[in-house]
Simulated assay, not measured.
Amino acid sequence: MHALTAVAERGPGLIEHQAAQRYFDRNFSREAVKILPGEFFVTTRDMLLVTVLGSCVAACIRDPERGIGGMNHFMLPDACGDATSRSARYGAYAMELLVNELIKAGARRSALVAKVFGGGRVMASLANANVGERNAGFVLDYLDREGIPVVAQDMLDSHARKIYFFPHGGRVLMKKLARVNNDTLVRREREYRERLSRDDASGDIELFS
């Protein structure tokens, strides 16, 4: 069986990777990690995972029995070529990176539960492509197929969201952003979308049972 580290060594074809922006959150008095588009993070510790979502979606998945949890932040590739199969393949790849890392950390797949967010229509350039709707529909379909219950969700609509996930206890705080006062979110999602259209996001990954 290929270890997850072997996948991470694939080089330029890899889109998703582990978040590295750590900081101390003074409001919640604990270590935190900021998760950007194309990143994920898993922890066994009582810490905070934070992300801001526009058209992208985030799955907050945890094993409540063992207090192990993680979050990802991803977008399906653009509809081009064999769009349906490419999007499904990449979406499954992005989700399995998170699930596999949870299992490596000690979570049991049969115990996993999820909370999902995002898919907002916040980028005018993506509205006609229904990018948020496709992302939201994919993550819900994927979790249903994999038998991972969705215990909470807030998706679609026309606003961005800031998500605070406490994986050890399972709590999620969400702030709806009626207005994004700078172009940081839009720029990050646009750059991520461009990487998806440019790079091969179909890296092989062996699934854990």
Rank of each mutant, 00 (worst) to 15 (best):
E133L: 15
L173S: 13
D82T: 10
N130P: 00
A152P: 00
G119D: 00
S110L: 01
L173Y: 11
G69E: 09
P149Q: 13
G106H: 00
V150N: 09
N128Y: 07
M71T: 05
C60I: 11
D157L: 06
A83P: 04
G69S: 09
A105Q: 14
G132V: 01
F165A: 05
G120V: 03
A94L: 08
G69D: 09
C56F: 04
Y142F: 15
R89M: 08
V139N: 03
N128E: 11
V57R: 03
I61A: 05
R62W: 12
L49N: 07
L126T: 00
H168Y: 13
R86C: 07
H159S: 12
D82F: 13
V131F: 02
G120I: 03
K115E: 11
S87W: 04
P167K: 08
L112M: 15
G70H: 06
M47W: 04
D78F: 03
M95E: 15
D82I: 06
R161L: 15
A136D: 03
K115I: 07
V122S: 04
L112H: 10
E65N: 11
A129K: 10
M95C: 14
N100P: 09
I68R: 03
Y93P: 00
A127C: 10
Y142H: 11
C60Q: 08
A136K: 07
A124R: 14
